[in-house]
Amino acid sequence: MIALAASARALRVFQVVWVIGFLVGTTTHTADLIVGGVNAYSDFPLGVRLFWVSLAFLDPATAALIIF
């Protein structure tokens, strides 16, 4: 039983670290979009720009999926 409790605790810590990481990513990408608009990543090819802009929406969705 003790090993199971420690395993569950380790899993919860792992989830919290991942959620914090995705929320930091959300903050970073949102700040980039606020400061630079959709042209924040204008030095990169279109596919890369679309990917980085989409992370402003995908990061919080991923964090929510991890939580729930």
Rank of each mutant, 00 (worst) to 15 (best):
A8P: 00
A10C: 06
L55Y: 04
Y41H: 15
A61K: 03
S42H: 08
A56W: 04
G37S: 04
L11M: 10
I66S: 05
L33V: 06
G36C: 01
R49C: 05
G37E: 03
F14P: 00
G37V: 02
T30S: 09
L4V: 06
V53I: 15
L11D: 08
S54T: 10
V17Q: 07
W52T: 05
I2S: 09
L4G: 10
L58M: 13
H29A: 03
T26D: 02
A3F: 06
V24L: 14
D32M: 13
T30C: 03
V48R: 15
S54V: 05
P45F: 01
F44A: 13
G47T: 08
A63M: 08
L50A: 12
V53L: 15
P60E: 02
L23Y: 03
V19C: 07
D32A: 14
Q15F: 04
N39Y: 03
A3E: 09
P45N: 10
G47L: 10
W18L: 15
V24M: 08
A5R: 13
L58G: 05
V16Y: 09
T26K: 00
F44T: 04
S54I: 04
T62M: 13
G21D: 04
I67A: 09
N39T: 04
R49A: 03
L46E: 11
L55D: 02
T28N: 05
F68C: 07
V48S: 08
L65E: 12
D59T: 02
R9L: 14
W18N: 12
F51Q: 11
T62S: 07
W52Q: 13
F57W: 13
G37Q: 01
D59Q: 07
P60C: 03
A6C: 04
I67E: 00
V13S: 07
F68E: 01
A61S: 12
V24F: 09
S54K: 07
T28Y: 07
D43R: 12
I67G: 00
V24C: 09
D32P: 00
A8C: 06
M1C: 05
F44H: 11
A64C: 06
H29N: 07
R9G: 10
S54E: 03
G21S: 11
H29Y: 06
A31L: 14
F51P: 01
I20F: 11
T28A: 12
V48M: 12
Q15L: 05
I2C: 00
R9V: 08
A6N: 12
D59K: 00
A10G: 05
V53N: 12
S54A: 15
V48T: 12
F57K: 00
G21W: 04
W18I: 11
F51Y: 15
V16C: 05
F14T: 11
L65I: 11
V17S: 08
V48F: 15
V35Y: 09
I66A: 06
G21Y: 04
L58N: 01
G37K: 01
L65W: 15
T27P: 00
Y41Q: 03
A63P: 10
L50G: 13
L58T: 13
A10H: 08
A31C: 04
I34R: 10
A10P: 00
L46C: 00
T26V: 01
A3G: 02
A8R: 15
S42C: 01
V24E: 08
Y41L: 01
